[in-house]
């Protein structure tokens, strides 16, 4: 399978890249591990492909209480970073695809792509991440919770680039984890849960079983006083909208419950300094 023909642009500056995206059918490419397969299947047929690789944008930098993660940082870069990457994010990145995919696929590409079953987005949501965007008009920051709008639909504009992901560093008393049950054939999560335990309460991001990656308010409330048992967590999961067409909704809910409880147990132990 070969992609449809396109014009290839290798910009030497962000401004040049933004200018090349003026064509409404132009598309930016980062790691290309979602986009190229879609182009091969002709599900995507960009007229112009704007290569972001020459712009750098790769690496994890500590900036006070936050980490600035360049859009072209690969999953593997995140997994192996020496910076204090929150465990939920590191574990979600380690759950993506296989070694070859993690060596090439990028965090910015994953967030911009808005895959409804993205491991990474569950963690990005649970960690109160900010998405840094740039256009000719300047930069803007969007909360992750307001960035993911639908399956493959995000707040990223056509003539806009996702430059970085800004993630708060865990302080004392913070702990996080990601746990998923994967489909053996595809590697995608059937149910994935990212949990952050912090002084203000508990944050829960879900993926795989929900129509798009979401924050789950019912679970955040249910876990505020700790894990009160399987029945209590399951009751909160029952208030979460699951993907339509699940073969067996009860099975899916039990998977979500188990993923949430396991991620919570790890996050809670880490928050107390027990690992």
């Amino acid at each position: 399978m070969i992609p449809a023909a396109f014009e290839y642009v290798r910009p030497s500056s962000v401004d040049e890249a933004l200018a090349a995206l003026a064509d409404p059918d132009a598309k930016a490419i980062a790691g290309g591990h979602s986009l190229v397969p879609m182009m091969k299947l002709r599900l995507a047929r960009p007229s112009v492909l704007v290569d972001l690789a020459p712009l750098g944008l790769r690496g994890v930098t500590r900036d006070g209480d936050v980490l600035r993660i360049g859009a072209l940082t690969t999953y593997d870069d995140l997994v192996r970073s020496d910076e204090p990457v929150p465990d939920a994010l590191r574990e979600a990145a380690a759950s993506v695809g296989d070694v070859q995919v993690r060596n090439a696929g990028t965090i910015g590409g994953a967030v911009a792509h808005g895959d409804p079953s993205s491991d990474l987005l569950a963690a990005v949501l649970a960690l109160d991440t900010i998405i840094g965007l740039r256009s000719a008009a300047g930069t803007r920051e969007v909360a992750a919770t307001e960035f993911v709008l639908g399956p493959f639909e995000t707040a990223l504009g056509q003539q806009e680039l996702l430059e970085e992901i800004v993630v708060p560093v865990h302080g004392p008393g913070d702990g996080s984890a990601y746990h998923s049950f994967e489909d053996d054939a595809s590697g995608y999560p059937l149910a994935g849960a990212a949990v952050r335990v912090h002084a203000g309460g508990v944050s829960v991001g879900l993926t795989g079983a929900t129509p798009i990656p979401v924050r789950a308010a019912s679970l955040e409330a249910a876990l505020a006083d700790g894990d009160l048992g399987e029945a209590a967590v399951l009751a909160a999961v029952e208030q979460v909208e699951l993907s339509a067409g699940a073969d067996d909704p009860d099975f899916t809910r039990s998977l979500v419950t188990a993923a949430v409880r396991r991620a919570f147990a790890s996050a809670h132990a880490r928050a107390r300094g027990v690992t």
Partner: peptide, 12 residues
Amino acid sequence: RAQKSCTLLAVR
């Protein structure tokens, strides 16, 4: 680093 060459564009 191991990568899948069916998913890489030669120009890149």
